[in-house]
Computed example of a mutant assay.
Amino acid sequence: MTYYDFDSFRHDAKVLAQKVKSKFDPDAILGIARGGLTLAHFLANALDIRDCFSLNSIHYEKSKKLDTINIYNIPDLSKFKKVLITDDIIDSGESMVAIKKKISNMYPNLEIAVATIFYKPKALMLPNFTIKEADDWIEFFWDLSLE
């Protein structure tokens, strides 16, 4: 397991914001709850984007992968042209493929890009913008447990 601390995140979020700004310049950001919310918030601030939304997608219970992908609480994105979807990591890629497909079906004229901090190269899809390759489980600084 690899621990990912706040200072590393802060640095990587700045680098990721520069990459996004130079090649995509979104109208809105859509963070995948829960892992993509912190990144969505930081990128929204860095890119000066007020339209920052979230949706829920559940494909893991702690570190156990589930057999289903539940996607819900999708915001109204009809007034936007370019939306950046954020998550902490693309692991298998199954969740992000399902999310992109659902959003694209609902909003066929929407240009979508994906930004993550980490990705696994064998995933079904790779993010458009990313920072680090992951080769094991990542424990993020926001993974706070009260246990």
Rank of each mutant, 00 (worst) to 15 (best):
K122Q: 13
T68F: 14
I32L: 14
E139L: 05
A13D: 05
N109E: 14
V83F: 02
M125V: 12
K81S: 15
E94G: 14
K23H: 15
F6M: 04
I85A: 04
T68M: 09
W142N: 00
H11A: 00
K81C: 06
L43Y: 07
D143N: 11
K82I: 03
G31H: 07
S95Y: 01
I99K: 03
S54P: 05
S63W: 04
S54Q: 10
P121W: 03
L47E: 11
I99L: 08
S95N: 12
M96S: 03
S104P: 08
K23G: 14
E111C: 08
V83I: 04
T2V: 08
F9S: 06
Y4E: 05
R34G: 13
D27M: 08
G36P: 10
P26G: 13
K23V: 01
K100M: 14
A13Q: 08
K64E: 12
I29D: 12
I49Y: 01
A98H: 07
G35W: 00
L126F: 04
L126R: 06
F42C: 13
E133R: 11
W137Q: 01
F140N: 05
V20S: 11
D51H: 13
I29F: 07
S92W: 06
S78F: 05
S92A: 12
N105S: 13
N70K: 14
M106N: 13
A40K: 05
A13E: 02
P75F: 11
H41P: 00
S54C: 11
R10W: 09
E61D: 07
K132F: 11
K81V: 05
I69T: 13
S95T: 15
C52P: 06
I29W: 04
G31V: 05
D91V: 04
F140L: 01
I85D: 07
P127V: 08
S63V: 10
Y107K: 03
N70C: 10
L55K: 07
M106H: 05
F6Q: 06
N105P: 06
N45L: 13
A134R: 07
D51N: 11
I71K: 07
K100V: 11
R10Q: 12
C52R: 06
G36M: 10
I29K: 03
A40M: 10
K14E: 14
L77H: 02
A13H: 04
R50D: 14
P108Q: 10
M1G: 13
D136H: 10
P75M: 12
G35Q: 02
H11Q: 07
A33N: 12
Y107A: 08
L16Y: 02
N128E: 01
M125Q: 11
I131S: 08
R34Q: 13
D87P: 02
D67C: 01
L39V: 10
D67P: 13
N109Q: 12
S22I: 00
A28D: 09
K122P: 05
N70D: 15
D136L: 02
A40I: 01
K82W: 02
Y119F: 15
D25N: 12
E111F: 00
S145H: 09
P127S: 09
A33V: 06
S95G: 07
F53Y: 15
M106C: 04
S54R: 05
L77P: 07
M96N: 08
K81A: 11
H59L: 09
D136C: 08
F141T: 03
R34E: 12
T2A: 02
L124E: 11
L30Q: 01
